[in-house]
Amino acid sequence: MSFAILMIVSPAMAASPSEQRGKTFALNNCAQCHSIDRVTQSPLKVAPPFRTLHLRYPVQDLAEALAEGIDTGHPTMPAFQLDPD
């Protein structure tokens, strides 16, 4: 006799407060141009999906870059400078 096991994939554990703040920030400030999820294309074709940023930039440097201010020189990319906290 064989048994089929059904696994229900549930969403990951609830996001931490800092993860939720980051997601909210990305939804409000980035998602108009960049894909911020795991599968969709960016609404603006020249804007890289967030899931590929590690291919262009060292991830460990992104926090510092965001705190110092990101200014890409790209006319449609706004400059950002965030509080380190």
Rank of each mutant, 00 (worst) to 15 (best):
N29F: 13
F25L: 04
A65F: 04
H34E: 00
H54R: 15
F25C: 03
P75Q: 05
Q32I: 12
P43Y: 05
S35D: 02
S18Y: 08
S42N: 05
L27E: 06
P49K: 08
L55G: 11
A14P: 00
K23R: 13
E64S: 15
T52H: 09
A26L: 13
P49Y: 03
R56F: 10
D37I: 03
G22L: 05
A14N: 02
H34M: 08
A12D: 09
L53V: 02
R51I: 02
R21K: 03
V59L: 14
H34K: 06
L62G: 12
S18N: 09
R51D: 01
E68H: 13
M13P: 15
C30G: 10
L62N: 15
A47L: 04
S42W: 10
M77H: 06
Y57P: 00
Q32P: 07
L66D: 00
S18W: 05
K23T: 01
S35G: 08
H54F: 05
E19P: 02
A12N: 09
L66W: 09
G73S: 06
T72Y: 02
P48G: 01
Q20M: 06
H74A: 10
S35V: 02
R56G: 12
L55N: 13
Q32F: 11
C33D: 06
P75C: 04
L66A: 12
C30E: 06
M13F: 14
